Amino acid sequence: MSLTIYLSGEIHTDWRDQIKQGITEKGLDVRVLAPVTNHEASDDVGVNILGTEDKPFWKDRKGAGINAIRTQTGIQSADVVVVRFGDKYKQWNAAFDAGYAAALGKPLIVMHAPDLTHPLKEVDGAAFAVTETPQQVVDILEYVLQA
């Protein structure tokens, strides 16, 4: 068995790299998909391709639309969606991705610190597993892929 996973969520730590390293170290047959994690490139893609905007709303709207092509395609293609919530910034996009994955019936693994349990209770309620570390995600993938 092999899996395709989509790694959604915060972009300010190396959690994706830790999961990829764990997958490699354990020799798991897992293909990893993710959004563009270069914050500036993600924010500016709309105006860089489609032209400048005077109002921030329209700049963000253009970028969000183009980024959604990658995000929705990745989530739809994934067998499992992992969503990481960090303590920095309010990650509304991560919550949206979790809801989208749940609406599609995708198995959802959520990762966050214990102090985010209350604000994320609805997201956690939709998750198949709620984790705190990248290693726990890797261990779940290893278990699921056991022969």
Rank of each mutant, 00 (worst) to 15 (best):
A78K: 08
T71P: 00
A41P: 01
N38M: 10
G74V: 04
D87S: 02
N67M: 11
K55T: 11
A68E: 03
D43L: 11
D44P: 01
A78Q: 06
G86P: 08
Y89C: 01
N67W: 06
R61Y: 12
K62M: 08
G51M: 12
D60C: 03
P35Y: 00
G46K: 03
T73W: 04
V47E: 15
K88A: 13
Q72A: 05
W58P: 00
V80Y: 00
V82D: 00
V82E: 00
D79T: 12
Q91Y: 11
V81S: 04
V82N: 00
A64V: 05
F85I: 06
V47A: 07
E53Q: 15
L50S: 14
S42Q: 07
A41Q: 05
I75D: 00
D44R: 15
T52N: 14
D87R: 03
V83P: 04
V81I: 10
F57E: 13
V36E: 15
F57M: 07
W58H: 09
V47S: 03
V36C: 10
V80L: 13
L50Q: 13
A41E: 13
K59S: 15
D60H: 07
T52F: 10
F57D: 10
T73E: 08
V80C: 05
S42C: 09
K55E: 13
G51V: 09
R84I: 02
H39F: 08
K59M: 13
A41F: 02
V83H: 00
N67D: 10
W58K: 03
I75E: 04
G86I: 04
T37C: 11
P35G: 10
N48E: 09
R84M: 07
G51H: 14
H39P: 01
V82G: 02
Q91I: 00
P56C: 08
Y89I: 02
Q91M: 07
D60R: 11
R70I: 08
P56K: 08
A41V: 11
K90V: 02
V83S: 04
V45R: 15
A78L: 08
K88Q: 09
V81H: 09
F85A: 07
T71S: 11
Q76D: 14
D43E: 14
R84E: 00
D79N: 09
K88V: 12
G65Q: 09
Q72S: 14
G65F: 05
D44T: 15
D54K: 14
D87Y: 01
D60P: 01
L50F: 15
E40T: 14
G63T: 03
F85V: 09
Q91P: 02
A68M: 15
V82W: 00
T71I: 13
A68H: 08
V81K: 05
A78H: 05
N38Q: 14
P56F: 03
D79A: 06
D87Q: 09
N48S: 12
N67L: 06
T37E: 12
P56N: 10
E40Y: 06
V82T: 05
L50P: 10
K59R: 15
G74L: 07
G74M: 04
V80R: 01
K90N: 06
W58E: 05
D60Y: 04
W58F: 10
G86W: 01
T73P: 02
A68N: 08
H39N: 09
